[in-house]
Amino acid sequence: MSALDAFSFLGSSTQFIERPKQASFSPYENNQGSIVAISGDDYVVIASDTRLSTGYSIHTRDQPKLFKLSNTTVLGSAGCWADVLTLSRVLEARMKMYLHEHNKEMNTPAVSQLMTSLLYYKRFFPYYVFNIVAGLDEDGVGRVYSYDSIGHKDTSNYVSVGSSAQLLQPLLDNQIGLKNIDGVTEPPRFTLDKAITIMKDVFISAAERDIYCGDSVYMIIIRKDGMVEEKFSLRKD
């Protein structure tokens, strides 16, 4: 008999003390979602699915995960929806403070650095979010930044995050990065129309395999002359 079993009895073998129960609590809940961003010489396309769910329950079928921060910058954020809303509001507040202090909007590279600072500040109790900051820099060139949970930043011409990232990223590597294709020495810069077509194809493909990706896709196209919003349907089962 182990020591723990021996202490379960008092006086006689018929008197038993119930072992303490362990209660668990997690402050996080993954509400899923997927985001993809593609940049070009004079544009950025960023898109997210609109399904917000927990486990096998769908809370809503019409919740985009993109937040317009300025005329040239968009935040894409998925994961724990409470943390998504908190982080986006803190970021928007900091950008308004910058606007009032400097009388100009923060550009996309500056927003990307601010995001790093906000995430690193919460490194001991991090936001459970998967983030992409996409937009145009001061020269009008498309920029895409992705992050880990404590603020490490990576720059790429294309990236995917969220529940379908393992399905989306290989397709992006093949179709945009042209990786593992014979005769290709350097990936070409795609036109906007080609980027939009690839964006639709990868989401349609992911929706066939990931139950957390579906319903529809909300897409924002960022160019010097402004932003254009588009929406297209996915399967709803």
Rank of each mutant, 00 (worst) to 15 (best):
M1N: 09
M1E: 09
M1V: 12
A3C: 06
L10N: 11
S12N: 14
T14P: 05
Q15N: 14
E18Y: 08
Q22N: 07
S24N: 12
S24I: 14
F25G: 01
V36M: 03
D41L: 14
R51A: 11
I58C: 09
Q63V: 13
K65N: 06
K68I: 13
T72R: 08
T72G: 02
T72Q: 08
T73N: 04
V74Q: 01
G76A: 05
W81Y: 15
A82T: 14
A82K: 10
L87W: 10
S88G: 07
L91R: 04
E92A: 15
R94F: 11
Y98L: 09
L99P: 07
H100L: 15
E105V: 12
M106C: 06
L114A: 09
Y120L: 10
V129A: 06
A134W: 01
L136P: 01
E138L: 09
R143H: 10
V144Q: 00
Y145R: 05
G151S: 10
S163C: 08
S163L: 06
S163M: 09
A165N: 05
L167W: 02
L168D: 02
L172R: 02
Q175E: 13
I181Q: 08
V184W: 08
R189Q: 11
I198L: 03
M199P: 00
S205K: 01
S205H: 04
D215V: 10
S216G: 09
S216Q: 07
V217G: 01
E229M: 04
E230V: 02
K231C: 12
S233K: 15
D237Y: 12
